[in-house]
Design a binder for these strands. Structure first.
Lengths: 193, 193
DNA sequence: AACTGATGCCAACAGGTGTTGGCAAACGCT
DNA sequence: AGCGTTTGCCAACACCTGTTGGCATCAGTT
């Protein structure tokens, strides 16, 4: 299904397709799914709206293509167990500041069922798989991954979507010592009574 | 501005106004700001769409009225300092499960600037004010409140919006011992190096 | 009973939406 | 050069949106 299956020879319209995708990510990230119109995206990409339909079938199809995302989580089995939280939060912050796809996905997930589904896939499959790799009790893996997701997504939501002043003004480096222990406990700790 | 200012004598249309508000909260919570149409809300309330306009002026006005919300935070100065985290998470969970206004606000805040603004007001003013009440260093109050907001909103986002299975399936009572220590550290702890 | 204001509905407007079909130009191949 | 395919644009459709003005009906007052 994805483009990397076979080395299909490059099409002449690849530049257009890429421009559409780039504009789509920007608009979806800035405006959310419903406010981002195909016409606006096409204008940004300097092509006709009908091109978007031809190459991506529908608005849903365009979003699906634009929201393709890999967390690129490091192999947690290779990380010193005591540093898991810090490695994770650093990785996520870097991933988030460098790629607007996640913001687009986050914004859209609030109102678009497909986007929410995608988000679930990413944070259940990819994250839970990574958490499982360093050998916690399998019975608790899903919950630990969910808790980590809740803090990570909450950070992103307050920092990039709602833009709470204290979360926006604090540099990423200063957030690490606060968030890292939280993730560390979610991953390796026990609940407190 | 609010209705409780003066004992204005009850209008005959109060029932209609209330029905509109109830339907609006439901639709905004379920569909988000743009997908929730005035026509759908009016149908739910069993009145004509033009009534919504007459009583609330515009869609924005309706949302503003429907998203009025008070966190009703307890006086944190009266809480044993060691139990701050637990009291807070319990309060939020109860507040969230019992009133769909917060979910409506959360969904809408992703795409509607006015809703984001409102959310900022609630989680900066109300929460920060409560945090300030138990006498932390004023210089760190805003950041502590922001961190608490990030975990609270992340929990809500994963549980009520994205509906990550592990966060949906876990009963509220089992979440407390995981989240409480996080909030406790954000409120009274120091960052780790 | 007559009047005034509130309450409600209907019909319509103007604008924007995703989406479609057709047609011209450019390209790649034989 | 002649061919079929690809790339692109234009114009339009069908639908839905928030919003408005007018007209009937009802309640309360004089």
């Amino acid at each position: 299904m994805t483009a990397s299956a076979q080395p299909t020879q490059p099409r002449r319209s690849d530049a257009t397709r890429a421009a559409i995708l780039r504009a789509a990510r920007e608009r979806f990230a800035a405006d959310g799914y419903e406010r981002a119109t195909i016409r606006a995206i096409a204008t940004d990409a300097q092509i006709d709206p009908s091109m978007v339909m031809r190459y991506y079938g529908s608005k849903e199809g365009l979003f699906a293509a634009a929201a393709e995302f890999d967390l690129r989580l490091p192999d947690l089995a290779a990380v010193p167990p005591a540093h898991l939280g810090e490695v994770l939060i650093r990785h996520f912050l870097a991933r988030w500041e460098g790629d607007e796809t996640l913001v687009a996905l986050l914004r859209a997930a609030s109102t678009n069922p497909g986007a929410a589904e995608r988000m679930r896939g990413i944070f259940v499959d990819q994250l839970a798989a990574a958490v499982a790799r360093f050998g916690t009790d399998p019975a608790t893996t899903a919950r630990r991954a969910g808790l980590v997701a809740s803090q990570i997504l909450g950070l992103a939501f307050t920092r990039y979507i709602v833009r709470l002043p204290p979360m926006v003004d604090t540099p990423a480096e200063e957030l690490v010592p606060w968030i890292a222990p939280t993730l560390q406990r979610y991953l390796t700790g026990l609940p407190e009574n």
